[in-house]
């Protein structure tokens, strides 16, 4: 799966998450609630739905593993609910402090986007990846917030029903923007890339920021369901001198890195451009920056 297609799918699932959030949260009438409890509830609901949808993208569409997609959605959704609740309360405070308008709305959505991007920590356990996701969420929140505010102003004098539709479309746009920009930020700001040249995942690109695990296990960052690939086979790690490929000591199989055999427990330095053969899959490491 190409990088563009990954972004596309995450955007569509983010939009579906936004729609699900709008549908579920909007079924509860919070008009009479005090402002802050309402923000907590709405933030938790939106964070849960959008973060769960974004987190499930890889399991559902890259790894094509339903249990993995459900597990990631559960972890991402729970983290998204917690961070989304806190994020929307902070967003509401910022919105009021800035006096509303485009600035207030966008700043508020940026905070919510950051909270959803940060929820990746519960899925990947990678701090740097989550921080990059939060940056993407900030950018997605900004773009989505501007679109939402534009829609609101465009339909300012419309009927009650039109206002409701604007709310739904606005949240779909916010979800899509956050969903698209989280993986985009990870890709744009990545230190390196692993490209699958051959094998069942041919065409897939996985960004390398700190560590990328490789194996047949669908919890690995780069899931390779090819023959000859061990459950947890190896990893690419960022070290002080650059990057290195390690075959895990317990792996049932070695690897070829630039034509050199790397045995279980062995390490090979990566300078960029190396071909890595793991079982029947072949990868290329591209170093983007140090």
């Amino acid at each position: 799966m190409s990088k563009a297609l990954q972004i596309y799918y995450t955007a569509v699932l983010g939009a579906l998450g936004g729609l699900a959030g709008w549908w579920a949260v909007g079924a509860v009438d919070t008009a009479g609630w005090p402002l802050w409890p309402a923000y907590l509830f709405v933030g938790a609901g939106l964070g849960l739905c959008i973060a769960a949808a974004v987190a499930a993208t890889e399991g559902a569409l890259v790894k094509r593993s339903r249990p993995r997609a459900l597990l990631d959605a559960l972890r991402g959704g729970l983290a998204g609910a917690l961070l989304g609740a806190a994020g929307l309360v902070a967003a509401g405070a910022l919105f009021l402090a800035l006096g509303g308008g485009f600035a207030g709305r966008s700043a508020g959505w940026m905070l919510l986007g950051a909270a959803i991007g940060l929820s990746d920590i519960a899925v990947s356990g990678r701090r740097r990846r989550a921080v990059l996701g939060a940056l993407g969420g900030v950018a997605g929140g900004l773009v989505g917030g501007l679109l939402y505010e534009g829609l609101t102003l465009a339909f300012l004098d419309s009927s009650d029903r039109a206002q409701m539709v604007v709310g739904g479309v606005g949240l779909v746009l916010v979800g899509a923007c956050i969903g698209a920009l989280i993986p985009l930020a990870r890709q744009v700001l990545a230190a390196g890339e692993l490209r699958v040249l051959r094998g069942q995942q041919a065409g897939l690109t996985r960004e390398v920021n700190d560590t990328v695990t490789i194996g047949r296990y669908d919890g690995c960052d780069l899931y390779l369901p090819d023959a000859g690939v061990a459950w947890r086979h190896g990893l690419v790690r960022r070290v002080a001198s650059g990057f290195q490929f390690e075959v895990l000591p317990g792996a049932e199989g070695g690897a070829l890195v630039g034509g050199q055999v790397v045995l279980p427990g062995g390490v090979a330095a990566l300078a960029g451009g190396e071909r890595i053969r793991v079982g029947e899959a072949e990868l290329e490491f591209v170093g983007l920056r140090r």
């Binding site: 959030g21 919070t30 008009a31 939106l46 009021l96 508020g108």
Partner: peptide, 15 residues
């Protein structure tokens, strides 16, 4: 300033 950054109301048909 109407103070709601966000107020969500939904309808299944629109959904």
């Amino acid at each position: 300033l109407q103070q709601h950054l966000l107020h969500v109301r939904s309808n299944p048909v629109v959904g």
